[in-house]
């Protein structure tokens, strides 16, 4: 039979229909929430890593500033100071900054104006410490005094304390925002799933009437809503990733990252982070759909 053969090879229609009029606004809400969740997730992640990086950098280093004496500063004084520092058990390395490097540090405040060569700049020594260790400032200062070296030691403690406090505040705020957005996203995914099921209540009853197993019906709805939520989540997450990537490009064009703001760079790792948003949404929708369908069917199976 020709007609029969045509029907046999035709693709089966999906059992669940797409309720576009009701579904579209909810889909858009899910996309927007996924976008916001992805942005907040990346911001939280960046602020966490940046704060950790700053703290590590500040806590494992110290700066020694040797003041010019009557006879000026000599490389010999610097080498003598370096030797004293290297004797300390907590110090791993000491770099003597050249005059050019010292002048470069002043550039953000003084601009590109060339500084006179006879300007008495202090000599800077960058000291690297063992992880988690600090410099015994009293002992080093005494040793410097004994050697006739006038120096200030800065272990960045004041900076580190203030920076850590600010970073923790930023972390808390972004984490709180992330939690709130995730709660809203979960609630929206649950609501979208439930309202979708309510719109298909008659179909569910028909399946039940003709003897479909509850697991069959639940799987049908679960897969459908999981896929829909995944799509919404993927659009939102990809949108967030693209927006951040674009901002990163613009920031680069604008002269690079600021000294204290976290870098806006996006990479493959960020893509993995945002991928968790659609996956999470799909899991939530699948579980909600499964639970709602089973609950409805169990109540209906033989009331």
């Amino acid at each position: 039979m020709v007609m029969g053969k045509a029907y046999n090879t035709a693709k089966q229609s999906p059992l669940l229909f797409e309720d576009k009029s009701d579904g579209r606004p909810l889909f858009m809400i899910l996309v927007i929430l996924a976008f916001l969740a992805s942005l907040t997730l990346l911001a939280t992640k960046t602020s966490y890593f940046a704060a950790a990086h700053w703290s590590a950098q500040l806590s494992d280093t110290a700066t020694v500033q040797i003041k010019p004496g009557e006879g000026g500063l000599s490389q010999q004084t610097a080498a003598q100071a370096r030797g004293i520092l290297l004797q300390s058990e907590t110090v791993t390395d000491v770099d003597i900054l050249s005059q050019e490097q010292s002048k470069a540090l002043l550039r953000p405040w003084l601009g590109d104006t060339s500084l006179p060569d006879d300007l008495p700049l202090p000599l800077l020594l960058s000291v690297r410490l063992k992880k988690g260790q600090s410099l015994d400032q009293q002992k080093i200062t005494a040793q410097f005094r004994q050697a006739g070296i006038r120096a200030d030691i800065d272990d960045h403690g004041r900076w580190a304390k203030s920076l850590t406090r600010s970073a923790r505040m930023a972390q808390t705020i972004s984490l709180l925002s992330l939690v709130l957005i995730i709660i809203t996203l979960v609630a929206a995914a649950i609501f979208a799933t439930r309202s979708g099921i309510a719109a298909r209540r008659k179909f569910m009853s028909i399946l039940h009437q003709i003897g479909a197993n509850p697991n069959y019906t639940a799987r049908l709805f679960s897969q459908n809503f999981a896929l829909k939520s995944f799509k919404a989540g993927a659009i939102g997450a990809l949108g967030a990733y693209l927006v951040l990537s674009l901002l990163a490009v613009l920031a680069r064009d604008d002269g690079g990252a600021s000294l204290f703001l976290p870098s806006l760079k996006t990479g493959l790792t960020d893509l993995y982070w945002v991928a968790s948003v659609p996956v999470g949404m799909a899991i939530i929708a699948a579980l909600t759909a499964w639970r709602t369908v089973m609950k409805t069917l169990i109540a209906e199976i033989y009331p």
Binding site: K202, F203, H208, Q209, I210, G211, N213, P214, I301, Y302
Partner: peptide
């Protein structure tokens, strides 16, 4: 509960409101 769908599959039902999809 799990036996009910199986029993229902042994029945054919025609209702007044047709219950078509």
């Amino acid at each position: 509960a799990r036996a009910i769908p199986k029993t229902k599959r042994r029945m054919g039902v025609v209702l007044q409101d047709f219950q078509l999809v």
